[in-house]
């Protein structure tokens, strides 16, 4: 983990409300593990003080990239920043996905929204290729499909309005795949909480392990403020653990879903 002032190499619209930001950040790039994130201070945001967390989409030698959706003050201000401008980044942060071992389990990825970006490095570094199930409301919500195909992964898309791929929810093709049978499969999921809950239930039903990446509001990003917690089962009951430190990736069996928001 380092805190650095980093330069924007590019910040371009990807699709619709999604932008890709690439930063010159060698120390962060070299240390990044799949599923980790960065905490960015967006300089034009004067009265909005807090940093914003973003999953690391790609880490290539000297640079890191994030894919982000403009949803509010910070992401809209970020979208106006240009190549050459600087911002402060803390990263890489958090506990990421377990990269499958060679000859081990077949990874099945389940993504919604920016979850696709959050899981790209996992796919890239997994010796075993698998399938990505990606869902969104409409076609523009399906991100970086080409990147996954380029590294030899199969992508199965669903949209709620049927404008792309199968019509419906991402869990439908996932369940169909699990029903076909097969051994040694493991689920990895990142997306809205409702999707994570559904994936956790499916994992339980089919008795397959699942790692899920949680999304909570964060202040510090480094474990000091205790704002970002999720309920995690322990030997003696349950406790709140930090998305930014023990997470964002948790074993779905350990999450107390009844209490998780």
């Amino acid at each position: 983990m380092v805190e650095q002032t980093v330069q924007i190499i590019s910040n371009e619209r990807d699709t619709d409300a999604y932008f890709q930001l690439t930063l010159q950040a060698p120390e962060i790039a070299r240390a990044t593990q799949p599923g980790q994130f960065m905490h960015l201070r967006i300089p034009p945001l004067r009265e909005a003080l807090l940093r914003r967390p973003f999953s690391i989409f790609q880490a290539n030698g000297e640079t890191v990239a994030v894919l982000y959706k403009t949803v509010g003050k910070g992401t809209n201000a970020l979208a106006k920043m240009r190549a050459g401008e600087e911002l402060s980044a803390i990263g890489p942060l958090g506990h990421g996905f377990t990269v499958p071992a060679g000859g081990g389990e077949t990874p099945l990825l389940v993504a919604g929204g920016y979850g696709m970006a959050a899981m790209y490095l996992l796919a890239e570094r997994s010796p075993q290729k698998g399938i990505v199930f990606v869902g969104g409301r409409q076609r523009v919500d399906i991100l970086c499909e080409a990147e996954f195909r380029k590294i030899g992964w199969e992508v199965r898309a669903t949209t709620e309005d049927g404008s792309y791929g199968e019509k419906g929810l991402v869990t439908q093709p996932l369940v169909a795949e699990l029903k076909r049978g097969g051994r040694n499969r493991k689920l990895f999921a990142c997306g809205p909480t409702a999707m994570l809950k559904a994936v956790a239930k499916i994992a339980e039903e089919f008795q397959v392990p699942a790692e899920i990446s949680t999304d909570e509001h964060m202040c510090c990003g480094v474990g000091v403020c205790l704002t970002c917690v999720v309920p995690i089962k322990t030997a003696s009951g349950w406790e709140y653990q930090r998305t930014c430190t023990e997470g964002p990736v948790f074993d779905s069996r350990n999450v107390l879903w009844e209490i998780a928001k």
């Binding site: 009265e47 909005a48 003080l49 807090l50 909570e216 509001h217 964060m218 202040c219 403020c225 205790l226 704002t227 970002c228 917690v229 999720v230 406790e239 709140y240 209490i259 928001k261």
Partner: peptide, 25 residues
């Protein structure tokens, strides 16, 4: 004794500040 703290969201950003309700976890 140990304290579990409040449910989330525990924070909200406001103009030039923030709210928190950690509940002394």
């Amino acid at each position: 004794t140990p304290v579990r703290g409040n449910p989330t969201p525990r924070t909200a950003e406001v103009t030039s500040g923030m709210l928190n309700a950690i509940g002394l976890q």
